[in-house]
Nucleic acid binder design. Sequence first.
DNA 1: GCAATCTTGTAATGAGATAACGTCACACAC
DNA 2: GTGTGTGACGTTATCTCATTACAAGATTGC
Lengths: 136, 136
Amino acid sequence: MNEHVHDTADLTKNQTLVMGALTRSKGPLSAYTILDQLRDNGFRAPLQVYRALDKLVEFGLVHRLESLNAFVACRHPGCDGDDTIAFMICERCGQVNEITDTALAARLKQLAGEASFALKKTTIELRGLCRTCQAA
Amino acid sequence: MNEHVHDTADLTKNQTLVMGALTRSKGPLSAYTILDQLRDNGFRAPLQVYRALDKLVEFGLVHRLESLNAFVACRHPGCDGDDTIAFMICERCGQVNEITDTALAARLKQLAGEASFALKKTTIELRGLCRTCQAA
DNA sequence: GCAATCTTGTAATGAGATAACGTCACACAC
DNA sequence: GTGTGTGACGTTATCTCATTACAAGATTGC
Ligand SMILES: [Zn+2]
Ligand SMILES: [Zn+2]
Ligand SMILES: [Zn+2]
Ligand SMILES: [Zn+2]
């Protein structure tokens, strides 16, 4: 088995349950919301969720949205190789759109380089209204 | 007086105290850290800090760092007009560098436009090591 | 078997943020 | 001057988010 790329078949029981909750959801979920949804599956404590989330984020199956303190299942096929992901978060319907852009990533790397900053992780979160919600 | 641009002279007592704490600090501070620093000035409750912070952020004198749940005094002269600010946060020494870049902002606006996303606020936070901390 | 390692369960606590209430000071109309 | 609206302030309680600490099972490799 590939040791870097994970799919849902590799997951433990708790990881599978948490992944399922996120995949079923239309938008991001907080850890405690996930906990509530999994009470019937034997979840009793936040740590059960957080431990699973840590792994899922590590595997690249889930992204953490810093500005929401919430988590979302990755729906961007092929964001594995890319560590510069921009999230467009609709403040009305909660929908999250995940995009990568080489020009954007290149510009950020350029800026970091000019400042001699050793870039490890980038967080880009755009807040606003999605196409649908602008009409309403 | 200009009704949009604020300087420290416009601030209330609590706002001045919170602004002072942030200005004195080399790096970002959490609301509760600020609270502790201002106990001697009569601060007793988190809300006193949060209320002041809300206003200071609104005035553009302070920025909130989403990935740290912390606040930092603006040290970027002229970031008023620019709503696309990138923060470079050193994970070792905590120093925060604030930069604006027209190419970066333009690309983000472009991407939002292509998705018909009505952009309201952008969060860009780069984590890594500053020049000094890479040597050590 | 046995040790090393990983995963899990549980309780307690720490850290970040807001709700709900009442008070006070001040500007401004009447 | 009295009423009224507005904004800042103080206090308590509560809510949400996240981690520490400790113990117990499961898994793997030898
Ligand atoms: Zn993704
Ligand atoms: Zn929407
Ligand atoms: Zn600034
Ligand atoms: Zn540093």
